[in-house]
Design a protein around this nucleic acid. Structure first.
Lengths: 217, 217
DNA sequence: TAAAAATACTCCATAGGTATTTTAT
DNA sequence: ATAAAATACCTATGGAGTATTTTTA
């Protein structure tokens, strides 16, 4: 069964006349007969009564019509969903660092959800390296992470700017920090920031970027 | 969009690899590419990300997959409904005479409904001539009427046998009835019965028959 | 250099068309 | 005599195949 056949079936069900159906669908009468016969063969049941005035649905035909209408309704919905992109909907998979997740993100996601209620948001909280991996594996549609991150396959946009602050248990000078042992996770972005800060010997701004896969089309 | 294309789309969505998909569906790799490209053209949106390991759904592709699964589910249901005829279901349009409607039919329909709860019964109460007309016009699937009725397009089965009784306001003899004026509707079946009864000068049995359109397949 | 998709072609199955016959009113 | 469906046969579109190239890890 193909959709073309079903379309012919539905039209014939209403027209009850192969010649008229052929006209309506820009086919030729014999093709209508052939397509319907093929359907009847496939379902192994007559779908129409043949009489001198045309063709009328059998009970099985009425059942098929019922389903066919549902199928075409679904297909219309599909077309509509994919082509008329008004309000976004569906599943959006967002990633974020733990630090970001707990600060400004909740309000942002809440207002997004309110604006686009048909988007089902899912949030994955992970360290940056894993978020990037998921982006490249198409497991995430986008992520909030500490930037800037440059990559030809990713598009990034600044979202927040945060101030990084260094706390200490006792009064300390910048040049003292240089000699302390610093324990961080490997490739920790904040450590990098701290190190470049120490180099500059000044305060720097820590920007939060939003990364989303770059769509080549 | 044809169902064949959708089938290819769904398989590729899971396999994420055109070569594997071609194997699974007994196609050739280039055909998978071509069919997907045609779908993407039709929906005017990319459905897959192309990368060195294969192909992965875009967000739009995920939406389409969602709909496609629904569509195939409906189609499975359609096939099942039309081909595996276990319990009957759907709409059954029954006709009947007024006299029959009020007597034995209610119990019969009630027990039928109980046995086949998925059949939606509709009952049309009309005189025999109209019931026959509706049967011939495919407006009824069957009718209970006073028989026997012989017609090459109809199949009839005896269901009930009733006793016809003649009431009179005063004592009367059979041969007296012959001379009375008898008022009935035109072609009234009970009048015919009475007349043939008068001919036989005996009591006759009035049989109720069930007529249903004869299915030539 | 592998393993994938894309491209450029060729082929063929079958949807669709032409012409005619059959059927029932 | 008309109006419908069915049949036999033909045509051609586009789906599917073959062989090759391109791309990226």
């Amino acid at each position: 069964m193909e959709l073309k056949d079903l379309r012919i079936f539905v039209t014939l069900a209403y027209e009850e006349n192969t010649t008229k159906t052929a006209e309506v669908l820009n086919y030729v009468q014999s093709n209508i007969t052939a397509r319907i016969k093929k359907l009847e063969e496939e379902f192994q049941t007559p779908l129409f009564y043949r009489h001198s005035k045309g063709m009328t649905l059998t009970p099985k035909g009425r059942q098929l019509l019922d389903y066919a209408e549902q199928i075409f309704h679904l297909i219309d919905e599909t077309r509509h969903a994919l082509m008329d992109d008004e309000l976004p909907f569906g599943h959006l998979r967002i990633g974020t660092n733990e630090t970001t997740a707990s600060s400004k993100l909740p309000q942002l996601l809440a207002s997004y959800s309110k604006k686009y209620p048909d988007v089902e948001l899912s949030l994955r909280v992970e360290r940056t390296a894993f978020l990037l991996e998921d982006l490249f594996n198409y497991q995430l549609d986008g992520a909030f992470m500490v930037g800037p991150i440059e990559h030809p396959d990713l598009v990034s946009t600044p979202v927040f700017t945060e101030k990084l602050v260094l706390f200490s248990s006792e009064p300390i000078q910048v040049h003292d920090v240089r000699d302390k042992t610093l324990l961080t996770r490997p490739n920790d972005l904040y450590r990098e920031r701290l190190e470049s800060w120490l180099e500059d010997e000044g305060s720097i701004q820590n920007e939060l970027w939003s990364l989303t896969r770059w769509n080549p089309y």
